[in-house]
Design a binder for these strands. Structure first.
Length: 216
DNA sequence: AGCACGATTAACT
DNA sequence: GTTAATCGTGCTC
């Protein structure tokens, strides 16, 4: 006799084709952030795939980075960042928003990549339901919007993206014509001192979306 | 127990 | 350009 499969028991290739392994995340955070661009982030929820191309990411690198949550030392909130690479650090902010990071570098070194933008690929009806009223390429163009679209909240904090039955992971598949990468200062660091405030650790894919219909 | 603030967003002038 | 929403978190008393 077999019991009915639990929501996380299905590790089938159909739901979870070739994914980025832990060795991908266990590297310098700037490299990981840049190389995540154009890859596909996938969320498996109740046997359904929600996904999008990663088009924007920021690096937060170590306790010495005064913009990184880890700069205050190890706390219950940020402890996942000190752990193994390839795990999800999901935090709550402004009393209402969740944001998703992917932990990088080696065990014991607090660093992560904040995912700030996706181009939706799979599960668009669900995303439109959650974020109605905007064009599809604007559904997930912010760190908290991305989490809304993929149904990501604190329950996924600490999830292993490299586990066989992961609910969240990054596929090896990448955009064929991703376009140029734009580098700039990280966003929202209003009270962070220099030089951290201006470090060019924000990476974006431009021209990643299909050309818009010409107006007029 | 109380407080100030935030890796944001939508709505507004 | 500005502001309010809204509450977990980490700090101080």
């Amino acid at each position: 006799m077999t019991s009915p499969p639990s929501p996380r028991a299905d590790a089938s290739p159909r739901l979870r084709p070739s994914r980025l392994p832990r060795t991908f995340f266990a590297r310098p955070t700037l490299d990981v952030a840049r190389e995540l661009l154009g890859r596909r982030l996938v969320r498996v929820e109740r046997g359904r795939r929600l996904s999008g191309w990663i088009v924007e990411a920021e690096a937060y690198v170590g306790q010495e980075d005064l913009a990184c949550h880890a700069h205050v030392g190890r706390t219950p909130r940020n402890q996942v960042m000190w752990g193994l690479p390839g795990h999800a650090y999901v935090y709550f902010t402004y009393g209402m928003h969740w944001c998703l990071n992917l932990v990088t570098e080696q065990d014991g070194r607090p660093a992560a990549v904040l995912l700030r933008g996706l181009l939706p690929v799979e599960g668009l009806p669900a995303m439109r339901r959650r974020r109605g009223g905007v064009p599809d390429d604007r559904l997930a163009d912010g760190p908290a919007k991305l989490c809304q679209c993929l149904s990501i909240d604190g329950r996924l904090n600490g999830d292993d993206l490299c586990a066989p039955d992961a609910r969240l992971f990054v596929e090896r598949a990448h955009l064929r014509r991703p376009g140029p990468v734009t580098v700039g200062a990280r966003v929202g660091l209003n009270s962070v001192p220099e030089p951290w405030k201006s470090k060019p650790w924000r990476f974006r894919l431009t021209q990643a979306s299909p050309p818009r219909k010409r107006i007029g």
